[in-house]
Design a protein around this nucleic acid. Structure first.
Lengths: 154, 154
DNA sequence: GCCGCTTAGTGGCATATGCCACTTTCTGAG
DNA sequence: CTCAGAAAGTGGCATATGCCACTAAGCGGC
């Protein structure tokens, strides 16, 4: 099943985005299951990995997610010993995050599975189409919705 | 800020999708805020509205969401008196859902705000681009990931 | 009519995300 | 130096979503 959405539903950009996210999320989660990580967690570990002991705020900004949401999402990963935090040397307000050796191993394991999911997905929609899609999504992520309809001076 | 994602991040189709969903979700939620509904709730009310006393399973299938997740999401809406459920006359396993008069009024109110969000968004990315994006998302939603790489007979 | 299989939901548990109210630190103006 | 205001996180509360184990109801086959 999983038919094309009924005309009425197909019109809302946000609803369609969420719908596709649920679908794709289930797929990536399934493939990542053997690692015990969810796709969101794998993504978060990766984000931390490619950063240089990133501050929580920096991670949240990169992923466009609420700082507190990041804090919550980080908890199970800390609990399971994959990541650890430590205060910045110069600014004690800042809390930096890094992978533990165990987290690094787990990320490696997860990345292999991620590759499979990624490849399977791109084999179905086509590499070009996937790239186009990611570009479109990145554009959306970069939009500036602030300006209330009629933007004032500042 | 909200920079273009660092190269490394931009590669995961799933991560990019979630990231864009968070961003767009915040926008639609903001615009819908005056109604007291979240974009997800407005979407759910709408889905129920355009259906003919849809069964929970039907709604879940249309939105590609877990049946139990739908049940949970429905609770606050029932609590607030926007929707009500009733057993199907012929099959007592089936629980149908419909808007209450109050829910209908609230949906009308929310749809007006939704239109604003929708228009503002499409004004920024362009109507065509938006339509193209929705089509791509619908395609993803329609994919069949079941077949484990090498699909056997049955 | 009875039994096993399937279908539709429910409840509990866990993660994903957000917003808001605070607390702790920093910073800059005077 | 001192204090108001900004910046970075934390905790609590609420919704969004999923998976799994169950329960209740149809459906067939014999």
């Amino acid at each position: 099943m999983t038919q094309a959405a009924p005309p009425g539903l197909t019109l809302c950009n946000n609803a369609m985005l969420r719908r596709a996210t649920r679908k794709l999320g289930q797929f990536y989660d399934d493939v990542l299951a053997p690692s015990g990580l969810k796709a969101t967690q794998q993504g978060l570990l990766y984000q931390i990995h490619i950063g240089d002991d990133p501050a929580m705020g920096a991670i949240a900004a990169a992923l466009i997610m609420d700082l507190s949401a990041l804090g919550h999402t980080l908890k199970p990963l800390i609990r399971d010993g994959y990541v650890e935090t430590f205060a910045d040397k110069d600014d004690r307000r800042i809390k930096r995050v890094r992978l533990t050796p165990r987290g690094l191993v787990k990320l490696d394991e997860a990345m292999k599975l991620w590759s499979l999911a990624q490849q399977r997905f791109e084999a179905m929609v086509g590499k070009d189409e996937a790239a186009r899609l990611r570009a479109a999504l990145d554009d959306i992520a970069a939009l500036d919705f602030d300006t209330p309809p009629a933007a004032p001076s500042k």
